[in-house]
Design a protein around this nucleic acid. Structure first.
Length: 357
RNA sequence: GUGGGUAUAGUUCAGUGGCAGAACGCCAGACUGUGGCUCUGGAUGUCGAGGGUUCGACCCCCUCUACCCACC
């Protein structure tokens, strides 16, 4: 899932998102962000304008993050209490309070298809007791999120219209989030107790926050033993191309990451030959495509030399083309994974003997 | 022609009689539920040329050269 924090997957127009990758299937779902859209332009304004889908002209699926991660990443500006999180806006310093109820209200107003429970992303490293306390609060917040959500889930900007079509859902889905720091038993307990609350999908949060890759895998494996296989299982914030393939092979269904988009704007391209830094002088006269095995709209049309020139010149098109390629590479990677799953054999992709594109 | 000024990193410029500096550029690296085209690191010098003073000169003195400004 490409990340589109502020109502846009940075640098990429929606019509290109819909037509991305070698088979032109495009992105099926993107993320939006509660914290950012609440601060600007404001969730009530978005509701007034018909909801986030209509506002940004995106009629495929939308998932909104609950604001829990921003509470973590903007830590200098926040204060966590049982009721919720008070924080100061990074835009103008104004004071705000996020509670599970408030997060649900905002996500419903935005009109997301998948709403995330309001959680606390435990910092790393965290002592065991700290991780447990944080996990317990996330569980209490999950219950409050669900209670508010169930009472208000028909209040999205699109619920009324959707109700006229019996073939489609007329409410969003609320996903619970597993926490527990880097302690496998806490993770398992968090998963069990989150499943008891009965959500239609489950996320594993608080990973890729500085721990080793082996530790990340250990936590995911522990949690996947508990989470029901017939519900979507979502690892939040992952990852590098090799990572998401591994997680998918372990049984993870959904992932999101800013890496393909942010790294693209910083000149880093993901290719079948590994990562390349397009600003490197060695590409100044390179007439080949960013990735010789990629059939995306950027690779069929532009040379590395041109992409480097655009980047070095700080042309806005550099960020656009780099992002389009990186997202196409990620989507093609996952397309290969789905294809391999259909064939019943992921070993080729995992061993690297089959091209990820 | 006369008077004044300038000359230091690729560029624009600081600088002090005692280890040669900044910014930008250049070269690389980083980026994991996105505040921030961001962050981190590295390389680079006949201090215009020649002579003098001094223990020691990029710095003070003299000459030359180049460029800039004003005036004729």
């Amino acid at each position: 899932m490409p990340v589109g924090t502020a109502g846009t997957v940075k640098a990429v127009p929606q019509d290109i998102l819909e037509d991305l990758g070698s088979e032109k299937l495009g992105a099926q779902i993107i993320l939006g962000n509660t914290y950012h859209l609440y601060l600007r332009p404001g969730h009530e304004l978005v509701r007034t304008l018909g909801g986030l889908h209509k506002f940004m002209s995106w009629d495929r699926a939308l998932l909104t993050d609950s604001g829990g991660f921003q509470v973590f990443s903007l830590s200098e500006l926040r204060k966590v209490k049982e009721e919720g999180v008070s924080f100061r806006s990074h835009l103008d310093g104004s004071s705000h309070l996020f509670t599970p109820e408030r997060s649900m209200e905002i996500q419903i107003a935005l009109g997301a298809d998948i709403v995330m429970a309001f959680d606390e992303c435990t910092e790393h490293p965290a002592e065991r007791e700290r991780a447990r306390a944080s996990m317990e609060m996330t569980l209490r917040w999950a219950k409050r999120s669900k209670d508010y959500f169930e009472a208000h889930k028909h209040e999205t900007p699109w619920s009324q219209e959707a109700a006229r079509n019996p073939g489609l859902p007329n409410t969003p889905a609320l996903f619970g989030i597993v926490q527990g720091g880097m302690y496998a038993d806490l993770r398992r307990e968090s998963a069990e107790r989150t499943v008891e609350l009965d959500f239609p999908g489950y996320a594993i949060g608080g990973l890729s926050v500085g721990e080793s890759r082996a530790k990340t895998m250990e936590m995911i494996a522990a949690v996947l033993e508990i989470l029901p296989k017939d519900k979507p299982r979502y690892v939040m914030g992952a990852g590098y191309p090799e990572e998401i393939v591994q997680y998918a092979a372990m049984g993870v269904d959904m992932m999101d990451c800013v890496l393909p988009t942010r790294a693209a704007r910083h000149g880093l391209l993901f290719t079948s030959e590994g990562r390349i830094n397009i600003k490197n002088a060695r590409y100044a006269q390179d007439q080949g495509p960013a990735d010789p095995k990629c059939a995306c709209r950027v690779c069929v049309r532009y040379t590395r030399a041109y992409l480097r020139h655009l980047f070095v010149s700080a042309e806005p098109l550099a960020g656009v083309l780099n992002t389009v390629h990186n997202l196409a590479f990620y989507l093609d990677t996952m397309r290969s994974v789905r294809h391999a799953i259909t064939l019943g054999d992921l070993s080729g992709i995992l061993s690297g003997s089959v091209s990820l594109t």
